[in-house]
Simulated scan of single mutants.
Amino acid sequence: MSFLTSLRPAPLRALNLTRSLSTTPVSRLARMTIVGRLADSPEIVATASGQDVVRYALGTSHGPKDNRQTSWWKVACFAPEGGLRDLVMGLGKGSLVYLEGDCSMNKFQGKDGTPQTALSIVQRNVEILDRRDSRAEGQAEGESA
C-alpha cells in the first residue's frame, strides 16, 4: 500500500454515521435561531380547535448602514397558561430576544387560488436580551394623547 492510498478516506459504509456529537433528539423539523426585536406587542389568537396561540413578529437587520435590509419573522408560541406565556405577553415593541424555534414550510392555496408557501416558526425557547415593557409603552401612549 502506498503512502497516498493510506491517506484516502475510508468508504462511507465503514464510517459510523450516528449523531455522536449532538445531544438533541433527531427531529424532522428544521431548527432556527434568531436574535431580533419585536415588531409589536405579542397577541393571543385562538386556533380553529379553540387552542390559544401567542403570535408575534421579530425583525432582524443585516448589511451595511447605508443599505440595511430588514427581514420579518412570524413566530407562534403554543404556551399554556403560566410563566412562559406571561413572560412573552409582557414584552413590548422593540424588545430584543433570542429565539430558538422549529421551522417548517407549509404549502396552501391563496384566496385567489394560486399556490403559495409560508415558513412557520414555532417557539421552543426564548430568552429576553433587552426588555421593553408593554405596560410602560401603553402608559407612554396614554400620556402623549
Rank of each mutant, 00 (worst) to 15 (best):
K107T: 12
L96R: 04
D102M: 08
L96S: 07
K74Q: 03
K107A: 13
I44R: 02
S71V: 04
L119C: 09
G82T: 03
Q116I: 04
N67F: 09
T114A: 13
M89A: 09
K111R: 13
G94Y: 00
T60E: 07
Q109F: 04
L84V: 06
P115G: 14
G101S: 12
S120E: 07
C77I: 10
A118Q: 09
P64G: 15
F108K: 03
M89Q: 05
W73K: 03
G92P: 00
P80V: 15
Y98G: 08
S95G: 03
G63A: 13
G82Y: 01
V88Y: 00
A46P: 00
H62G: 15
T47E: 04
M105E: 14
L91C: 09
V75G: 01
T70S: 13
C77H: 02
L91S: 03
G113Y: 00
S95W: 00
G90Q: 06
G50V: 06
W73D: 11
G83S: 05
S71H: 08
L87C: 13
I44M: 13
G83R: 15
E81R: 01
Q69F: 14
L84I: 09
P42G: 05
L87W: 02
K93H: 03
D66P: 04
D112N: 12
S104T: 08
Q51G: 00
D52V: 09
F108V: 07
G92K: 01
N67E: 12
A46C: 04
M105R: 10
V45G: 05
K107Y: 13
M89C: 06
L119I: 13
E81L: 04
L58E: 12
G82I: 10
A46V: 05
